[in-house]
Design a protein around this nucleic acid. Structure first.
Lengths: 339, 339
DNA sequence: AGCCCGATTGGGATCGTTTTCATAGGGAGT
DNA sequence: ACTCCCTATGAAAACGATCCCAATCGGGCT
């Protein structure tokens, strides 16, 4: 090995006085190595600052050591919603922890879909984490056909048969929120939903419904769609105040919408929580702690979700058995001042 | 080639009736190949749906086909500031366009720095795009020592000798903004700065100073630090209203801060733009178009900046000559209603 | 002593490319 | 007709890991 070249396994083996094969076994923590060999190789590795060559390894193991993280979302939301930034960050971290490279793909247009298809089919990654909540998302049908391990974030639309996913307990969280409002003695509770082409929004709605013990017809009178945006939340809240003038509590299906709803309520002269109690969803700290008053919210731990997704995916990639295809993460209520 | 295995170059060559070497030459668009061979190979490639094996290629070319995109930013900002989401997205897109994988690294803690160092030194990527605007950022000194092509976004702190970077014309943009306010006949113009441990903030300040034609002492009386956050902008604005009660215009060094400043002004009963004209910086559409009133702002095109960074980096990676180490992108004024 | 067995080990093939080097095949120039 | 060169080609050697397979080495039994 020349002075400037990076050391290879050969160099390590030479230094440790063993063969390449043995050195390799140490690196892959095979049990069939003597303690002395193990020590010698370990020492050589750290003395030389050896780092395995990914490409060489990938070539022979037929694994790339990279996974794709795919966000399928019509253009603009990725900018506005801090939720995405958080998920991306969680992904970067969780994957780095298991020493896997993350290939980030943001899919907006049909063009992007085609590109994603080519890439995923091209064997450039060992698996994929897919964030595609919307109904009729072409990407999901594309990905389903691929012979590639995939773990979804939340339920994608369509049949779930055979899909691996990690979901938050949206329904349970909604029940928690609603029951909390009821336990405060609130009688007229309304609900700002997310876009109903996302199952997370639907699940939250159905949690609300069941905690209220009402049917579809009754529920329609108590809800409005806020589209998971701040503006939308504001608008939906205004709408609900017109529809249900005597409302005294609202469960809003996301913190971002709740921030909008709070503004609408306050502009209408309502005091929070005296006149109207408000509960959000996400417990997105950057939002919930800075609203006026601070927002009571249902906590879903996205970091945790992504971590589970990664762990799950790595099992699939290594063809280890997984206990269950679908994991459900609990949600909890975080009380602040708005309810 | 078996039925399910991905085709290799060997398969392509066989089908085209040439040797592996010739097929390879076609793929790398070498000039030394006959038209017939070219056509035959091209046809075979598309018939078989061949995609080169990255690992094999990486192994022999000693290039990974991946670059790191590194953000060095104390924890929380990455969530709040939509600017980051935009940069990340621009990076993902620009790199996908040149068929290079992006490895996203978010560096917050010293631990992260160590990890980044190991990774970058480990030869896992061909180069890096570095976003590290702050003073005394350890990461920059680490990265500088690495024998790795690097392109910075904006000027990192410290000596620029030998560094490659793509910067926005912050100073020019600030001049544009300030002169626009003067041309409206405003007499008492103040400035909300970004954190002065970032050179972009300093450059904007110095543009303001030179357009106002005043010295450091005078400038101190007309400025306050808003830290590039919304809350900070609000606070700085309040401070300035106390310091300069008769102010009739403000140039705010970012749109996010401008949103906060607008709130502060309006709560103090000022009409925009009648009483106080406001100009922001960034032209971050998601913000500037939705403030009340819509915000006049200095446009810097981050997508373009990232694209240039990628192009620049790829030249370095391929060891092609670059005309100039430092590129400066123009900024323009976008008029809306706030000034 | 002779044999077997399990535990370690090393040799060498292999993964799919790129790239060097040698060679074949023509046309141009004398 | 013979050389000279230039172009297009193919054979084969890398690149740096993993892993199959055979070989070695003791130790425990018979």
């Amino acid at each position: 090995m020349s002075i400037h070249a990076r050391p290879t396994l050969e160099d390590v083996a030479a230094r440790a006085g063993v063969s390449r094969a043995t050195a390799s076994r140490v690196l892959n923590s095979s049990p069939r190595v003597s303690p002395e060999a193990l020590e010698a190789v370990t020492a050589a590795v750290s003395e030389l600052g050896y780092q395995p060559n990914r490409a060489a390894r990938a070539l022979v193991t037929r694994r790339t050591g990279a996974v794709a993280v795919v966000f399928s979302e019509p253009e603009p939301k990725i900018f506005d919603d801090p939720h995405f930034a958080r998920l991306i960050r969680a992904g970067a971290r969780a994957l780095a922890d298991v020493d896997v490279q993350m290939v980030l793909m943001l899919v907006h247009s049909p063009d992007d879909q085609a590109r994603a298809h080519r890439f995923l089919a091209g064997g450039h990654v060992d698996g994929a984490l897919v964030f595609a909540p919307h109904q009729n998302d072409q990407l999901v049908s594309i990905v389903k056909k691929l012979p590639l391990p995939v773990v979804y974030a939340g339920k994608p639309w369509g049949p779930l048969r055979g899909l691996h996913l990690v979901d938050n307990d949206n329904e349970g969280g909604a029940v928690l929120a609603t029951e909390h409002l009821r336990s405060l003695g609130r009688k007229k509770i309304v609900h700002v939903t997310g876009p109903l082409d996302e199952l997370s929004a639907i699940d939250r709605l159905s949690g609300f419904k069941s905690a209220m013990g009402i049917d579809d017809k009754a529920v329609a009178k108590l809800t409005a769609d806020g589209g998971f945006t701040k503006q939308g939340g504001r608008k939906a809240m205004t709408e609900l105040m017109a529809k249900v003038p005597d409302l005294d509590a609202v469960f809003v299906a996301s913190d971002l919408m709740a921030a909008g709803a709070l503004e609408a309520l306050q502009e209408a002269g309502k005091r929070i929580p005296e006149d109207v109690a408000v509960v959000g969803f996400d417990d997105h700290v950057a939002i919930a702690e800075h609203t006026e008053p601070p927002l009571t919210s249902v906590r879903q731990d996205s970091d945790q979700q992504v971590k589970h997704m990664v762990a799950h995916l790595m099992k699939l990639v290594r063809e280890e058995p997984v206990k269950q295809k679908r994991e459900m993460l609990p949600t909890t209520l975080v009380r602040r001042e708005s309810a």
